[in-house]
Design a binder for these strands. Structure first.
Lengths: 199, 199
DNA sequence: TTATATAGTAAGCAATTACTTACATTATGA
DNA sequence: TCATAATGTAAGTAATTGCTTACTATATAA
């Protein structure tokens, strides 16, 4: 039992790596098996088909919202510190899951419903959490009366595009220094806006 | 001469449509030819190979910055009206080029350099133009002293993610009403920030 | 020891697919 | 009218690829 699931895990990890690099159709079962260190036959014995292997990959790496466990601790921080924490955590979380993020980008055509589910669970889930945080601060009278979900989408959206441009399109890793500096700017704009005389 | 280039255009348009829907590897040359209303042989006579057809597609649809021609007229608008105009134009431009946007998402693995070039020319080009606009207003003392390029990336980033989530991931078209309402919110936050007491 | 689960070797099949060759047909422009 | 450019028809090739079959080998647990 253990042996079989170890083999499955090796195959799924190999598939994750290869498919994120060359796409689902561009990756062969032979290649996945070789990368996992097993025979192609073993792949079919464990998963039955390439498609089901990919579906198990999606199910296993269907990631949870990245911030849920972060939110309770946010109350003790200043608004600015809280947003910086959220932004940093979100970007690091994207970096960790970069192969999966790439797959949601490139395979949406192939498995629209499944990929959409993976994507929305991550991005939208995270956005909902952040929106709740905004709402709480609005009730305390600290924030203006904007639409919380849309503001959350705006905040995550600028971070996500930043990640996408740097890590996926330019193919360059975001360094810690870059991240600190740029997150600081994003948070500053998000908090104070761009106009000289405040609201 | 004219006949030949008409045929090429039909083939490129068919390829754009199909590849944006099913990916480069998921689209066959037979299918492209059939959709274009010609024989598969004609495709190979015009382009030599599937790869070169795709490369011509990328070259032809390598889009220019979406805002360049918009910028000169921005001076006569208020800051808020200007940003709303830029945002609306940017979103409409993304909608128009949705097949190409989808291709840049899904085929980055296959043609990293070429796709990167297409992407950066559009997004980064547009961002640079917007950054110049910010810089001009900063010199006039109207805007705070933020980093103009990063602010431009933040603004475009939230719009781009908004487009991506709605049109590509959710697969639903952004209506005019949605766009007006949401662009208004984005612009408001970008201008005034989220904090109750302005800067 | 022995049954069972797991994996390997080897060979191959059937379908797909990018691409080719040979030849015939039609449209266009001088 | 005639040369040429452009497209079509038909058949096929070589490579790839997901998946199968038949048989063997090894490790583990009762």
């Amino acid at each position: 039992m253990t042996k079989a699931s170890e083999t499955k895990e090796k195959l799924i990890n190999a598939a994750l790596k290869l498919i994120s690099q060359k796409g689902y159709l561009g990756t062969t079962t032979r290649e996945i098996a070789r990368t996992a260190g097993v025979t192609e036959l073993t792949l079919f014995r464990r998963f039955g088909s390439k498609q089901r292997l990919f579906e198990e990959l999606l199910a296993r790496h269907m990631f949870l919202p990245a911030l849920r466990e972060l939110l309770p601790g946010l109350g003790s921080l200043s608004y600015e510190e809280a947003l910086r924490t959220v932004a940093t955590r979100f970007l690091l979380s994207l970096k960790e899951r970069k192969p999966m993020v790439k797959i949601t980008h490139s395979e949406i055509n192939l498995y629209p419903e499944k990929i959409r589910k993976v994507y929305l669970q991550f991005i939208d889930g995270t956005t909902v959490d952040l929106a709740r945080y905004f709402q709480a601060l609005q009730k305390k009278g600290l924030l203006r009366g904007f639409a919380p979900e849309l503001a959350a989408r705006a905040f995550m959206g600028m971070l996500f595009s930043y990640f996408r441009t740097e890590e996926i399109m330019k193919g360059a890793a975001i360094t810690k220094k870059m991240m600190e500096r740029d997150v600081g700017q994003f948070v500053d704009i998000f908090i104070h806006g761009t106009l000289r005389n405040g609201s």
